[in-house]
């Protein structure tokens, strides 16, 4: 647990992956572990404060049977162009190795056209958490925002 001004700031922490093999480029990426109920083990999601919305990887959405739903269609603009999809409310867990894990039920953008990884985006997810990075120890700390 981290403290700020004597008060608890975060409640849990886990090691992150910052040299993700999918990206042969010099910019750093921070991937953290998440648990999604239907999967037998944790998956990696990229923490992206520049992403307007959280996005589910297409194969993951397919495995969860999410493409049979079409409740709130929308568009998002990506660096590869505009893609169509839908907004869905989904549960996941930010898994802690130290301290307390958090269940987070949040809105995700889901699209068959999406070719990227799972993003934990700013709006509607990270903007309600307290997060901190210790790059020297590769630790990602998180807690519920007040």
């Amino acid at each position: 647990m981290l403290f700020l001004g004597g008060e608890p700031f975060t409640s849990g922490g886990s090691k992150f992956l910052d040299q993700h093999p999918r990206f042969v480029e010099p910019t750093a990426k921070v991937f953290v572990k998440v648990a999604i109920p239907v999967f037998k083990g944790p998956l990696m999601a990229q923490v992206d404060t520049a992403a307007a919305y959280s996005t589910l990887e297409t194969d993951v959405a397919e495995s969860m049977g999410l493409f049979s739903r079409d409740e709130y269609p929308t568009l998002i603009s990506t660096r590869l162009g505009t893609i169509r999809g839908q907004l869905l409310r989904l549960p996941l867990t930010l898994i802690a190795e130290e301290g307390t894990s958090l269940n987070v039920e949040a809105t995700f953008f889901v699209s068959r056209q999406w070719r990227g990884p799972m993003f934990l985006g700013y709006t509607g997810l990270l903007d309600r958490l307290r997060i901190a990075l210790d790059p020297l120890a590769n630790m990602f700390f998180f807690g519920e925002g007040v």
């Binding site: 409740e71 867990t93 190795e97 894990s101 269940n103 809105t107 509607g124 309600r128």
Partner: peptide, 16 residues
């Protein structure tokens, strides 16, 4: 759908 996330504490733990 357009609202903030719901956040609760979980007992789940993982290893290094």
């Amino acid at each position: 759908i357009l609202g903030p996330p719901r956040i609760t504490v979980s007992d789940l733990k993982d290893v290094d």
